[in-house]
């Protein structure tokens, strides 16, 4: 009997949905707007993260060594830094490389190049460029450099550091950390507000469609339908509305991200909208499908319950 009841509820739900025509179409459209907003928020989140990561990537601290520093000592400092959990990468630039870079950067400035030539000797020291895993960890790394003791390094090594430019970068790094926090916060709140509003609109649309069917509900009750039998088809219709909306949104989003990426990629500063969508498709699929089904069934359940109280 359970199988027969389930089969009948499913059939009735599908039939009601297909026969309600305009009402079903409008519920699907409203649900699609909600799911679109959720998709847009996921993509926007990806875009924000991409840009913040890129800005973070531009920040580092540099340790400048005196010109007389021995390579072994520099490498032992590098080894120490590499072993720190906060450190992502340490790039070693030899004094020769530093000079080559300097020349390259000033290739149009004859005065500077001439001065270098006249000096004869390489006036630049080697450099270690340190990148932290998280921009908040730079302060810790800077402190570590300040407090390096003779226990871990040879006596010479302690005196070979010329300058650490954390002090100069501190303002920028702190500002960046603040900016990242604010951007994340704004992104989160925007997403919450948009999603909340659209969920309320979807709920009300479904409530309205069930309000229109309230007479039918009372007739079903009079004919002797149990609560489950009345609720069931509405919930099935709600789920169907969610599934159809989700499929449409997933297909349309692929097309939209492709078109936007193709024609407006300039505005996204290197962020590939379509690639992001495809790379994260499984996650987006899960969220959109899940949201559609949960929204459709839950809204239907709440709305129809109202007419079953007496």
């Amino acid at each position: 009997m359970l199988w027969i009841t389930t089969k009948r509820i499913l059939k009735s739900g599908l039939q009601d949905f297909s026969r309600s025509g305009f009402v079903s179409v409008s519920s699907v459209l409203v649900m699609m707007i909600t799911l679109f907003i959720i998709t847009a928020m996921i993509v926007f989140g990806g875009f924000l993260k991409f840009n913040l990561d890129r800005v973070k990537d531009k920040v580092d601290i540099n340790v400048y060594f005196v010109t007389t520093a021995k390579e072994d000592d520099i490498l032992s400092i590098k080894k120490n830094l590499d072993s720190l959990p906060e450190v992502s990468t340490v790039e070693y630039i030899t004094k020769e490389q530093a000079l080559a870079n300097f020349k390259e950067n000033n290739k149009d400035n004859d005065v500077v190049l001439q001065s270098i030539e006249e000096l004869g000797d390489n006036p630049l020291g080697a450099v270690l460029n340190i990148k932290a895993k998280d921009s908040e960890q730079y302060e810790g790394i800077a402190k570590y450099l300040d407090n390096m003791s003779g226990e871990t390094l040879s006596k010479n090594a302690l005196n070979i550091i010329d300058t650490v430019n954390y002090g100069k970068n501190k303002v920028i790094i702190d500002g960046l950390n603040k900016l990242i926090k604010i951007a994340n916060m704004i992104g989160l709140w925007l997403a919450i507000i948009f999603i909340l509003f659209s969920i309320i609109v979807t709920f009300n649309t479904i409530k309205l469609t069930i309000f229109m069917a309230r007479d039918e509900i009372s007739v079903m009750r009079l004919v002797g339908a149990s609560s489950e039998y009345v609720k069931g088809p509405f919930i099935v219709s709600g789920i169907l509305c969610g599934v159809i909306s989700a499929i449409m949104v997933l297909i349309l989003s692929a097309i939209f991200t492709f078109i936007i990426n193709h024609y407006f990629s300039y505005y996204f500063a290197g962020f590939n909208l379509y690639n992001f969508y495809i790379m994260n498709f499984l996650k987006i699929f899960g969220v959109i499908f899940g949201s559609g089904i949960v929204l459709g069934s839950f809204a239907s359940y709440l709305a129809v319950r109202k007419y079953l109280r007496h």
Binding site: E216, S218, V219, M220, L222, V223, G224
Partner: peptide, 15 residues
């Protein structure tokens, strides 16, 4: 008080 979304046959079979 018939169910408007159902045919004559379905209105009766529903009961």
């Amino acid at each position: 008080k018939l169910l408007s979304n159902k045919t004559v046959y379905e209105n009766i079979s529903f009961a």
